[in-house]
Design a protein around this nucleic acid. Structure first.
Ligand SMILES: [Mn+2]
Ligand SMILES: [Mn+2]
Ligand SMILES: [Zn+2]
Ligand SMILES: [Zn+2]
Lengths: 150, 150
DNA sequence: GCCAGTATCGCGAGTCGTTCGCAATTTATA
DNA sequence: TATAAATTGCGAACGACTCGCGATACTGGC
């Protein structure tokens, strides 16, 4: 079952853009398709590389601008995974989740659960702090790498 | 009760350096004093500014090198607080703690507690992930700013 | 469909925080 | 104090973005 990029882009991207008075342009559609069809977090540079397979004339600055816009519209999420100082991007999930980065193999696992929500509650009741964004990155060793080198 | 920088530096810094075959140099001593005497997180640039009050000839590159070395020796801790893309530095605490950054006033609160340890246990038992560093930065509104603008 | 008006683009240059290579200096040890 | 190696200062380079601007291409109304 082939992934039909264009159709999907129009289905979710276009209304989100229009609702806020933004236009659906070729660079935005291609950036969105690149993000959606990726199975992992991508740097802006990596997004650009995928976009360029389809259209080499899309500028890197436009990729950055598109990603920033998507974040603003809650279509995409930016994370600092600590591998280098480049941001990584992924389509936004509805659920709170955070990232487990393996120091050996580089794999990035997702951890979804109530933990982020628990934390939010704890901060509010115990410290009066109204948490907005919770950026949690855990680095360590994944199950496979941990048992290989204990 | 004045803070006697030199003495303190030699008391904790020198043995930590010597144990690993590093030398106690003037730039390192001044960077360490600047960190220790600060009451808040500092950027490398801010550390340099404080160092330069004592000795303007210490180079910014040496400040960066000293901070990186201190992190390696677990004498200092680097955090990305999301205010800008500059790293912030503080002397290493023995206890796990994380940071609450207020979007209104910029204040950085510390949150120490069992939460980080809880998380570590949960990741190990539920996912087999051996957590090394847990980088948690929460941005939102502190108690003062939250009640001012609810 | 076409036009007007403006949002967006491509481009090149600029910024920021950080790192590098290397010759000169400083440090710990003998 | 002499020696050898670690470390420094310096300036240039780096990577990841961001900006200003004139050119382009969307979109909504005709
Ligand atoms: Mn993710
Ligand atoms: Mn802290
Ligand atoms: Zn692994
Ligand atoms: Zn505040």
């Amino acid at each position: 079952m082939a992934y039909h990029a264009g159709v999907d882009a129009e289905a979710t991207l276009e209304p989100a853009l229009q609702k806020r008075g933004h236009r659906l342009t070729r660079p935005r559609r291609l950036v969105w398709d690149a993000l959606r069809s990726a199975d992992r977090h991508l740097t802006a540079e990596q997004v650009a590389a995928r976009v360029h397979e389809v259209d080499p004339d899309v500028n890197l600055a436009s990729v950055y601008r598109s990603l920033a816009l998507f974040a603003e519209l809650d279509l995409a999420r930016e994370s600092h995974l600590g591998v280098d100082n480049a941001s990584r991007w992924e389509p936004a999930h509805p659920d709170d989740h955070f990232h487990l980065v393996c120091r050996s193999c580089g794999e990035v696992q997702h951890h979804a659960g109530d933990l982020v929500e628990q934390l939010r509650v704890q901060l509010r009741t115990r410290q009066g702090f109204d948490a907005d964004a919770i950026d949690l990155v855990v680095s360590g060793h994944c199950d496979r790498c941990a048992e290989a080198q204990p």
